[in-house]
Simulated scan of single mutants.
Amino acid sequence: MSERKRLLVVYHTQSGNTGRLAEAVVRGARRVAETETVVKRAFDAGVDDLLACDALLLGTPENFGYMSGALKDFFDRTYYPCEGKLTALPYAVFVSAGNDGTGAVREIERIARGYGWKAVAEAVIVRKLVTDDALVQCEELGEAIASGLALGIF
Rank of each mutant, 00 (worst) to 15 (best):
T13V: 07
R31I: 06
L56M: 10
G98H: 03
R127P: 00
V10G: 10
D73P: 01
G114M: 07
E23C: 09
T13K: 00
A24D: 13
G59V: 10
R20I: 03
S68N: 12
R4L: 03
V130G: 09
T131W: 04
L151F: 04
A52H: 10
L129N: 14
Y91H: 10
A97F: 05
T102H: 12
K85I: 06
A134F: 00
R31S: 13
A144P: 00
A24F: 06
Q14A: 11
T13H: 06
Y66H: 11
L86F: 09
D100L: 00
V47N: 03
G69F: 01
G84M: 09
G116V: 10
L129C: 09
A22S: 15
A92R: 04
T131K: 00
T35E: 08
V38K: 03
A123G: 07
V47W: 00
L129G: 04
E122Y: 02
Y80A: 12
A70W: 02
G46A: 08
D132F: 05
L50P: 01
S2R: 15
W117H: 07
D54H: 12
C138W: 06
V120S: 08
T13M: 04
D48F: 00
R113Q: 11
G65T: 01
G152T: 07
E139P: 01
S68C: 06
K72C: 05
A119Y: 02
K128G: 02
G84I: 09
V130I: 14
G152I: 02
A121F: 02
V39R: 12
I145Q: 04
T35R: 00
T13Y: 01
G114N: 12
V47K: 03
A33G: 15
D49K: 00
P90F: 04
V25T: 11
T35K: 01
V105Y: 04
E3M: 14
L135C: 08
G65V: 02
S2D: 15
I108Y: 00
V136T: 15
L51F: 04
T18G: 01
P90S: 10
I108V: 15
T102R: 12
A45D: 14
L129V: 13
V95E: 09
S2C: 11
Y115Q: 04
E62I: 01
L21F: 13
K40W: 08
L21Q: 13
P61D: 09
G101E: 08
E122D: 14
R77M: 02
E62H: 05
D133G: 14
A24L: 06
L71M: 12
L71Y: 10
T87M: 12
F94T: 11
